[in-house]
């Protein structure tokens, strides 16, 4: 059973260019999106039980290769990186299209795993959208997953309840953080990983047209980034810590909040 895990590289720390309002990626180290690590961990435990091959699929600049090596060190078998300038600036729809195009090219993929959301944009869109492009069912917010023959049995973590569902394979599953504790690769894992293949494909290799990917393939765009406006009149308390505390305590008491 072959498994694909969609992986995104996210900046280790969030910094904003305060004049342009864009996310600064230059000079900030990229790491695997935390939730995607849970997806990789799940893939590896499933492989240990059911066999098969795990392929990581990602889109981004060349340095995403290091991030993918981390995933390979966790136990994936190979990685594919869609690396092309024309893919830059993609929104979730264009991203999902490119990822799905790669997955269609891989042999006999039975299960596609994604993290529930990314730490940088956090839209939660890509999983369901990849599933749609592949024409397979999606099971989101999964906290436990079993493979039973040609079916999966997944426990979904919803607001007040857990819902257990069955779906036929192939299927796409998005996982929540609580599903497992991702393994940390060992030193030897890291060196083994660097021997595994990371294929870099450009848009042309995948037959992707310029208007299907990147900014052109993205129906949404950000037109403005701005600081949130003050919603309340904030009373700044000044003076010694003792004065501040007692005046605040008095105010809270007089409002009946204490």
């Amino acid at each position: 059973m072959n498994i694909v895990v969609c992986v995104k590289q996210v900046p280790q720390e969030i910094r904003i260019n305060k004049t342009k309002g864009t996310l600064i990626r230059d000079g900030i180290k990229g790491v695997i999106n935390p939730c995607d690590k849970n997806a990789i961990e799940l893939a590896v435990t499933l492989k240990e039980k059911h066999g098969g091959k795990i392929t990581l699929v990602s889109m981004g600049p060349k340095d995403v290769e290091n991030t993918l090596t981390h995933g390979l060190a966790m136990g994936a078998d190979q990685a594919v990186l869609i690396c092309d300038r024309v893919c830059a600036g993609a929104d979730t729809l264009a991203t999902a299209f490119a990822l799905a195009t790669v997955i269609k090219k891989l042999d006999d993929v039975q299960l596609v795993l994604c993290g529930k959301e990314t730490a940088d944009s956090g839209t939660q869109h890509v999983g369901p959208q990849v599933a749609h492009y592949l024409g397979i069912p999606q099971v989101t917010y999964v906290v436990n997953l079993l493979i039973e023959g040609s079916k999966i049995r997944a426990k979904r973590q919803l607001k007040d309840e857990y819902e257990t569902v069955e779906a036929g394979l192939p299927a796409l599953v998005t996982v929540v953080k609580g599903i497992n504790e991702p393994r940390m690769p060992t030193y030897l894992d890291i060196y083994e990983a660097s021997k595994k293949d990371t294929h870099k494909w450009c848009a042309e290799d995948l037959g992707l047209k310029e208007d299907e990917v990147g900014i052109q393939g993205s129906p949404t765009r950000i037109t403005k980034v701005f600081a949130p406006e003050a919603k309340r009149e904030c009373k700044m308390l000044r003076g010694s810590i003792e004065d501040i505390s007692s005046s605040l305590a008095n105010d809270l008491k007089s409002k009946g909040l204490v």
């Binding site: 003050a230 309340r232 904030c234 009373k235 700044m236 810590i241 505390s245």
Partner: peptide, 27 residues
């Protein structure tokens, strides 16, 4: 940005402010 949504703002080290606030609330 938290001060933009707050009614009361205290600029200071939270680990100093809390003990003082606890004292005042108890008193």
């Amino acid at each position: 940005p938290i001060f933009k949504v707050a009614d009361y703002g205290i600029v200071g080290d939270v680990s100093k402010v809390i003990p003082a606030l606890i004292e005042s609330l108890k008193g």
